[in-house]
Simulated assay, not measured.
Amino acid sequence: MAASEASVQTSFMDPFKDILINYLMPEKCFDEFFLQFNLLHVDCLKIVISKGLGIGIILGSVLVKLPQILKLIGAKSAEGLSFNSILLELFAITGTMAYSIINSFPFSAWGEALFLMIQTVIIGFLIQHYAGKTIKGLGFVVVYLCLLTILISPLAHRDVVTAMQASNMPAIIIGRLIQAGTNHKNGHTGQLSAISVFLLFAGSLARIFTTVQETGDSLMAFTYVISSFCNGVIAAQVLYYWNKTPAHKKKAE
């Protein structure tokens, strides 16, 4: 009788089994949850939460910097954004992406880096474009894409990519300090998008857990700890300067 019930349960879950196993959990956890009804299995819960967060972060990353891009285009200005900070952020994102690819980490553990990279390149171009340096902006895009192609190709040496990932921490810190310094100097956050800043902060916090759970890589995990702290500083500045208006706008008013 028990075997018959198990068979019915298995047949009932078959349409969902492949999807769940491919994206959310290993088969042993599927059995724990849906055959044994052990819904509080700690190890499996960690896996499911981690996978779910990873997928959520990736989906969110598709649009995370879109508010920033739209804000720049709408204002036709990149005031308050530091191009040097963007370069360092791009360096860190690229390092994480290349390091993850070369180590064959699951896409759910690093996929947002791909979408963040695309959006960050666009922001970098817009900063140059609205500064009247469109040709320089195009050159930046071309050079970056060439370097990226080399880094994710078999030509890239593992030691170089690992060193790049290790350099992410100072790159993130310096990049965020540059942006924080720009905000402090200006007395406002300019065209920084609050939505993008807070989403990046939340995403980096969630990535600490998913990285530990899915890769066990302490270097990547510590990178996200540093990233979370630095993103938190910028988020705090956004709140602090919330009602501050650029001086030229005050004069216009």
Results as ranks from 00 to 15, higher is better:
residue 47 I to H: 06
residue 246 P to L: 01
residue 175 G to Q: 05
residue 24 L to V: 13
residue 188 H to R: 03
residue 128 Q to K: 15
residue 216 G to A: 03
residue 76 K to F: 09
residue 100 S to K: 08
residue 216 G to P: 05
residue 65 K to R: 13
residue 239 L to G: 05
residue 70 L to C: 10
residue 140 F to T: 01
residue 110 W to Q: 02
residue 18 D to T: 15
residue 116 L to D: 13
residue 114 L to V: 05
residue 108 S to T: 15
residue 31 D to E: 15
residue 116 L to R: 03
residue 3 A to C: 13
residue 204 S to N: 03
residue 136 K to P: 12
residue 84 N to E: 10
residue 182 T to H: 09
residue 195 I to P: 07
residue 198 F to G: 00
residue 205 L to G: 06
residue 157 H to M: 14
residue 214 E to K: 07
residue 134 T to A: 06
residue 157 H to P: 08
residue 169 M to H: 06
residue 2 A to W: 14
residue 59 L to H: 05
residue 152 I to G: 03
residue 6 A to E: 11
residue 148 L to Y: 06
residue 69 I to K: 05
residue 93 I to R: 00
residue 78 A to R: 00
residue 93 I to G: 00
residue 6 A to T: 12
residue 109 A to F: 10
residue 107 F to I: 07
residue 227 S to K: 08
residue 156 A to R: 09
residue 131 A to H: 11
residue 132 G to I: 00
residue 5 E to G: 00
residue 16 F to M: 15
residue 226 I to S: 13
residue 128 Q to Y: 11
residue 94 T to A: 01
residue 216 G to F: 00
residue 242 W to S: 00
residue 129 H to M: 11
residue 101 I to Y: 03
residue 24 L to M: 13
residue 117 M to P: 08
residue 190 G to T: 06
residue 72 L to T: 07
residue 25 M to R: 07
residue 233 V to M: 14
residue 127 I to C: 12
residue 26 P to N: 09
residue 140 F to G: 01
residue 220 M to S: 01
residue 54 G to V: 07
residue 31 D to C: 12
residue 159 D to M: 14
residue 212 V to C: 10
residue 245 T to Y: 03
residue 236 A to K: 08
residue 115 F to E: 01
residue 248 H to W: 10
residue 234 I to E: 09
residue 129 H to G: 07
residue 57 I to V: 07
residue 145 L to A: 04
residue 105 F to W: 14
residue 209 F to Y: 14
residue 91 F to C: 01
residue 239 L to S: 05
residue 237 Q to S: 10
residue 211 T to P: 07
residue 68 Q to T: 00
residue 181 G to P: 01
residue 60 G to I: 04
residue 104 S to L: 07
residue 76 K to W: 11
residue 34 F to I: 08
residue 221 A to H: 05
residue 241 Y to T: 01
residue 167 S to Y: 07
residue 200 L to A: 14
residue 124 G to W: 00
residue 71 K to S: 14
residue 39 L to H: 06
residue 228 S to I: 05
residue 206 A to M: 08
residue 26 P to C: 10
residue 119 Q to Y: 02
residue 29 C to I: 12
residue 19 I to F: 14
residue 229 F to E: 06
residue 197 V to Q: 02
residue 235 A to T: 11
residue 49 I to H: 05
